[in-house]
Nucleic acid binder design. Structure first.
Lengths: 343, 343
DNA sequence: TATCGTAGTGCACACGTGTGCATTGGAGAT
DNA sequence: ATCTCCAATGCACACGTGTGCACTACGATA
């Protein structure tokens, strides 16, 4: 059994209350006693019991992070930011992945409730509203990150996808592209719609037409989904001179498929990604993409949650807050002027 | 405040002991009473307090997972396997990343101790032996995964890197390669040594010489490290006809650098990866690699840990166990017969 | 009818920590 | 010498759950 404050009390000849106070830095305890107790605690390898402390203080010093998939490189980077911030503040992370499976979602929510997590960060693009409602009902402070149904939650951190998508589109338009395709991911709901919207806005503002057969959605955001989509785009006549992909992973799949089909990028078709995952610098050609400040997003989400947790104790109602971060266009080698051949 | 068993007791007119027993399925409680209590619990949205339960039972139903980096695609897949197994068994995951920083390592170990994690899975290729010793001393059941200093721990899950590397090397030899380079990652300690060893064994068994200037190590296992290494290899005369990379990420960097240098893969140089991260299927050319059963590794690690946790209660000393899983060669497009041009 | 066994339930304590209040002792003021 | 005050510490209870033991009531047995 681990040593407890009672063990320390016995050894130093004081009451356990005194030990508790000394270790928490209560100034009522004399310096000598405190020192003696601290020394004993150190020597005995004392580690406070989070369970006992939680029980008493009603604070778990843990926050829950819900992802859709642990292995997604985009969300991994966000978790990186969250973790950095949390560890520094002395919080531990319960991480769980929903895998878009209702059964798992339910289990995860239950686990968060049982552990009385101090708050929850919801990084899952799709999370059933039923379970989301459970979380809200339980009274968790919740921060959602790039979530599709943000209107249900009061606090959120967002990337400005509309703006980002406009930047990408503008870049292509400035290069001279007119026949631009958009490849979306239905699974990511609002995010893909925002990016599509930004694309459309920018096209309209440039006076360019939007062709319905150049907008295509896949049911997933992995490389394989991008790969599969290319067949569709290559059939369209006239062929698009550029493809705006929902994210980098899909763009990587698109690059691969185009390479297999013998279509040169960027000479015949330009391709853009979104997110700037670390891999995107190492494709051939290197991907032009939108650099989303992933780590900052995670950090901001965590900071917001921590401030919610702190203020909740005093003032239960703070006004809703939505923070929107902007990304930055990153021009690399997968985009160029359209070639007359392909028009 | 959340509802407790006392609230349920008050509402149903029984003692809290009865509620406790009813909810835990104790057969001493009559069926009618149990039903009444279960109904009330359901209606009142009761969720047991993990803290209180932990305090009493001395089991936290949480296991700690220590990574070096949350965003590493290889370990992410392992975590995937762990999570799957853990959630199913009703365990939650405390995940933390050491980032190779001693300060963080210390904090992480402390957090695990305070939360009285039921066990720890150590997935960090490098973890200071000092902190590892702290974990052992505290008495955690520990399972290490692909860890460099496994001899310090009693339970481990391994991938057979020597065998895997031999498979890769044999494949290249069978294609006719003689001048094969090995690109290592010093940060990963034993793992890179095993892979180097497998390479050397297979070369020797084929009667081929190993050139010292064809073995090169970088200080990291990311794409950028692979990218940087190519300069060195291209200087060597005669130039290698194949490069065996420590992992897929480095191989991706190597592919990129070779492409930039105008060297054709696989016509002029063959390149192999290791791990089979999902991305490796989408490079151009697609990477020949060793498919490591990452998810199985995670699952096995978790299962082993759970069995340790269960048996520890009865029998404190089980014999050390080391499980070694073998990977499978995956031949794709980045390897081919050596071209006479490049010899 | 007295005794016994048993099914069903409550009592009381424990887990480790935190905290309001009471208690003690000593120094300073009158 | 007595009183006052304050610094330092202990006492006792609480948090929510689990569990050994005692107790009650009721049917079965002698």
């Amino acid at each position: 059994m681990a040593t407890t404050i009672k063990d320390i009390a016995r050894k130093t000849g004081v009451s356990h209350s005194t030990v508790s106070r000394a270790l928490s830095g209560n100034s009522a305890i004399s310096f000598q006693t405190s020192e003696k107790i601290r020394a004993a605690a150190q020597e005995m390898g004392y580690q406070p019991s989070a369970a006992a402390r939680s029980l008493k203080t009603n604070r778990s010093n843990a926050i829950g992070v819900i992802l859709s998939n642990v292995a997604d490189p985009f969300f991994s980077e966000i978790v990186f930011g969250i973790e950095e911030c949390a560890l520094e503040a002395g919080y531990s992370l319960f991480i769980a992945a929903s895998q878009h499976e209702p059964g798992r979602e339910k289990k995860i929510v239950q686990a968060m409730m049982e552990h009385r997590t101090d708050g929850v960060i919801l990084c899952s693009s799709s999370f059933s509203s039923e379970q989301g409602f459970q979380l809200l009902k339980y009274g968790f402070p919740i921060v959602v990150v790039n979530h599709q149904a943000a209107e249900n939650f009061h606090y959120s951190i967002y990337h400005d996808d509309i703006d980002g998508s406009r930047q990408i589109t503008r870049h292509l338009i400035e290069l001279g592209h007119k026949q631009i395709a958009y490849l979306g991911n239905t699974l990511s709901g609002r995010t893909t719609l925002d990016r599509l919207h930004g694309f459309e806005l920018e096209m309209k503002s440039a006076g360019l037409p939007i062709y319905g057969n150049l907008i295509h959605n896949e049911n997933g955001g992995d490389a394989i989904n991008g790969y599969q989509s290319v067949e569709t785009f290559l059939k369209v006549q006239p062929r698009p001179t550029a493809i705006i992909c929902f994210n980098d992973m899909m763009a990587i799949g698109v690059l691969k498929a185009l390479d297999s089909a013998g279509v040169k990028v960027p000479e015949e078709i330009s391709v853009t990604g979104f997110d700037n995952i670390s891999m995107s610098a190492f494709t051939s050609p290197a991907l032009t993409t939108l650099d989303q400040p992933k780590r900052s997003i995670g950090k901001e989400a965590c900071q917001l949650l921590l401030s919610l947790i702190r203020t909740q104790e005093n003032n239960p109602s703070i006004e809703p807050k939505e923070k929107i971060l902007k990304g930055k266009l990153l021009v690399r080698q997968s985009t160029a002027k359209p070639n007359s051949r392909s028009i």
